[in-house]
Write a protein that binds this DNA or RNA. Sequence first.
DNA 1: TTAATAGTTGAATATATATTCAATTATATT
DNA 2: AATATAATTGAATATATATTCAACTATTAA
Lengths: 129, 129
Amino acid sequence: MAKNEFICDCNIIHENIVKDTMNRMPESDSFNKLAKFFKILGDTTRTKILFSLDQNEMCVCDIANVLGMSKSSISHQLGTLRKSGIVKCRKQGKEVYYMLDDDHIKQLFEVGLEHIKHKNFVKEDFDEK
Amino acid sequence: MAKNEFICDCNIIHENIVKDTMNRMPESDSFNKLAKFFKILGDTTRTKILFSLDQNEMCVCDIANVLGMSKSSISHQLGTLRKSGIVKCRKQGKEVYYMLDDDHIKQLFEVGLEHIKHKNFVKEDFDEK
DNA sequence: TTAATAGTTGAATATATATTCAATTATATT
DNA sequence: AATATAATTGAATATATATTCAACTATTAA
C-alpha cells in the first residue's frame, strides 16, 4: 500500500493494525450516538439532577431548590435529559414530576466514580484550571 | 421553613424531599469530577480513539490514519485523554505508542451502547439537528 | 552535523452550549 | 372571568472547546 493512500504525512509503520482497526470500526453513527449520550452526562448540573432524581421523583421547583438554581435553567436541562431518553415526566396539576428513565444511569455513575477514585492522584494539570 | 429560605419563587411543595436530597448530595467536587470524566467520553473523535486503542496500542500516526484526521488533532485529543488518566503512552524511538489506562472504559462503552440500543426510537427531535 | 520524520504545542477560529431574561402556556383558585 | 403559580420556551450572552495552522522538539538516519 502506498504511503499516499493514507491521510497523514507519516510513513505508515503498522499497516495491518491500521487496516484491521478500520475494518472493525463501527459506523460513525454509533460513535455519534455514544458520544452524544456521554456528553449529556458530562455536565455538573445534569449529574446533580440525575443524582437527585435517583433519590426521588421531583418537580422542577424541587430540583431548582436542591441545586440552588433557577427554574428556567433546570427546565432547560430537564428538556435536554428528556429528549435524550434519560428522564421522563408526568404532569399532575400545575406541577411536572420528573424521574429517571434509564436503568443504566446508576451503573454508569458507579463506574464513573470508580474511575475517579482510582485516578484521584493528580495527573499533571488535570485538576487545575 | 419559610418560602424565602428557598432559592426560587415557588411555594415549596415537598420540603422534606428537598431537604433530604440536599443532605444526601455529595460535595460539588465529586460532581465536577464525574461530569468532567463523562465529558471526556462525550466527543466522537475521542470515542473513536478509545475504541481503536481497545483493539491495539497504536502510535499517533496509526490513529490519525484510522480516523482519517490530522496528527495534530489526534495529538491534542490524546493529550486530553492522557491528562484525564484514560490513556497512557510509551515512547519508542521517534514514535509514541498509546494504550488504554482505564479498566472501566470497555464497561462504560457497553453500558452506553445498551442505552442507545434501548432508546433507538426517535425521542422527539433528539436525533435531528 | 544535516536532513528527515513523529509528535507536541500555542494561538486563532469556528462551533457548541449553559445560563439568564422576558415572554408565554397551562392549570388551579378565587 | 380574573388572578396566581409552575413550568416551558426562544433569544441573547458568555463560556468552553475541537480543529487548523505554523512553529517547535526529539529522535533517527545519512
